[in-house]
């Protein structure tokens, strides 16, 4: 049990560090799809602008945080924690029930 916990602790901390400390250094160049959309002239089709305004953390940034670096770090922290918690919750919700397993 102890050994098992240590692995998940390390993996969780590594994931959080990637989200918080590495993410601000990510390349800001367009990704593969965006690049192709620019080259082939359909990037203007993107309608996400209106939906972005309703998103709490659009484009992995926190509104009102001046520093882009800190803004991305915060978004990374929130997102990684959210995935960790939602992933755990969904897993617990969907997992095999013990009583059903026995029958």
């Amino acid at each position: 049990m102890k050994r098992s916990f240590r692995f998940f602790l390390v993996a969780g901390v590594v994931s959080l560090l990637i989200g918080i400390a590495v993410s601000p250094f990510a390349s800001s160049n367009p990704d593969g799809l965006e690049r192709v959309a620019e080259e082939k002239g359909f990037i203007e089709n993107a309608e996400s602008a209106e939906l972005w305004s309703s998103s709490p953390l659009p484009d992995y940034g926190v509104d009102g945080v001046e520093s882009e670096h800190i803004s991305t770090s915060l978004a990374g922290l929130i997102g990684t924690m959210a995935t960790l918690i939602v992933g755990f919750g969904v897993g617990r919700m969907l997992m095999k029930r013990r009583d059903e397993g026995k029958s």
Partner: peptide, 16 residues
């Protein structure tokens, strides 16, 4: 499952 999801989310933020 939970930590895999978190790792994927974090790693997806890091465009190379």
């Amino acid at each position: 499952l939970s930590v895999t999801a978190a790792f994927i989310f974090a790693a997806q933020m890091v465009n190379f």
